[in-house]
Amino acid sequence: MSTTDPERSAARTDPESSALPEQLAEVIEEFAELEERQKLEMLLEFSRELPDLPERYSGSYDQMEEVVECQSPLFLTVEYDDDAGTAELFFAAPPEAPTTRGFAAILHEGLNGLSYEQILGVPDDLSERLGLARAITPLRLRGMTAMLGRIKRNIRAHLAETAPGRAG
């Protein structure tokens, strides 16, 4: 695609993009540079790189939250380090749901280990900024928006429980 790709230039000139956490901005940049076909390949790459669940979660999804908005089963959980104020994200989705795994891997790569505030500050239209709407269709992207929403909701609930003053 040429440098006049509207999605690409939109991502660059959007005033909010400067506020994106660096590791997330890098992921968006990676996708923005690619043509439609390559975007799908990149998403497939991400889906292969979704980290396995640690031992303590393996075999039992019942400790995790199911994201029912995804077209295929996806489970997520958040672990909090209140001293550092950062969150660790864990996702699980079956191999026969590579698109869902890809979305989860993008969020993991872009958000894992960030501070509560940074994650809460991620724009809700993140899935649109990846420029995947044409290749994936907006319908399917909905699952990723739902994952992000649930991660934020978990963090807000955790803040409300542990530090009511910070919950905003």
């Binding site: 799908l40 390949e41 998403l43 497939l44 889906s47 077209q71 295929s72 191999p95 026969e96 749901a97 590579p98 698109t99 869902t100 890809g102 290749a135 994936i136 269709t137 399917r140």
Partner: peptide, 9 residues
Amino acid sequence: NEDVLLYET
């Protein structure tokens, strides 16, 4: 498929 990437796997 429903999953747009499943064929590629």
